[in-house]
């Protein structure tokens, strides 16, 4: 492989990581549920591209499989399941959050800084990984923040999945992914998890006639 194509691969990796972070920021400001799901699908697409680039540059062939699984499950299957869930439950498509958009985006910016600070001690200048690790940590933190900030069950699920994307990115950046069998197991768990979260939000929507999880406040002490 020529030097140029490796250089190109590294730039592609950085570009894709940056794109994932941008999408995460967009999620914090987005107000429509179907768009939120589409953005998640887009972010996962960037993740799949990034994984493929890492596999190409480092000749780590098992990462191709992980990239393929991401493309299949996170870009296509899971968004489809979630969109169908919205149609079935007939929830209002408006996303409701506790904080307003400017405040949320400000907090996301702060969390990105935290991500860079946490990843700093692990950065080795000769490797490409450090930028991706910082982005991964930021995605992870912002994902959790979005989960707390959202009221609707489905948008909490999407936030959880973006945090999962961050984890996957960290895995690729640090060790070119986990051993294949572990990777497959994680994908299986995430898929089943999304299905169960779907079933549960469906039941919540039916019983409470709303997907607003702030109505879940009976159990105390």
């Amino acid at each position: 492989m020529s030097y140029d194509s490796i250089e190109l691969g590294h730039r592609l990796i950085t570009l894709m990581a940056a794109a994932m972070l941008v999408v995460q920021m967009l999620l914090a400001g987005q107000r429509l549920l179907p768009t939120v799901i589409a953005l998640f699908s887009l972010q996962s697409f960037f993740l799949a591209c990034l994984a493929a680039a890492v596999a190409y540059v480092n000749h780590a062939h098992h990462v191709y499989i992980a990239a393929g699984l991401t493309l299949l499950l996170k870009v296509i299957v899971m968004p489809m399941l979630l969109q169908r869930l919205i149609r079935q439950t007939g929830t209002r498509v408006q996303v409701e959050s506790y904080l307003n958009t400017p405040a949320s985006i400000l907090i996301c910016g702060g969390l990105t800084l935290v991500g860079y600070m946490v990843a700093h001690p692990f950065s080795q200048p000769q490797e490409h990984g450090h930028g991706s690790l910082a982005v991964a940590t930021a995605l992870f933190l912002i994902g959790f923040f979005l989960m707390i900030n959202q009221r609707k069950a489905i948008s909490q699920v999407v936030a959880l999945l973006t945090a999962e994307n961050g984890l996957f990115l960290a895995a690729i950046a640090l060790t070119y992914g986990m051993p294949l069998i572990v990777e497959v197991g994680i994908f299986f768990d995430v898929l089943v998890g999304v299905m169960i979260l779907g079933i549960l939000s469906y039941r919540i929507a039916e019983t409470f006639e709303s997907m607003d999880t702030s109505k879940l406040r009976r159990l105390r002490g």
Partner: peptide
Amino acid sequence: KTSLEAAWKYIIIGSIGISMALFGTLLTYY
């Protein structure tokens, strides 16, 4: 209503926890 609430809290809190554990596993691997 109460059991759905309990299940929702369980899976959401559990999922956050478990993804932290995955991060920890990953860092150990690293």
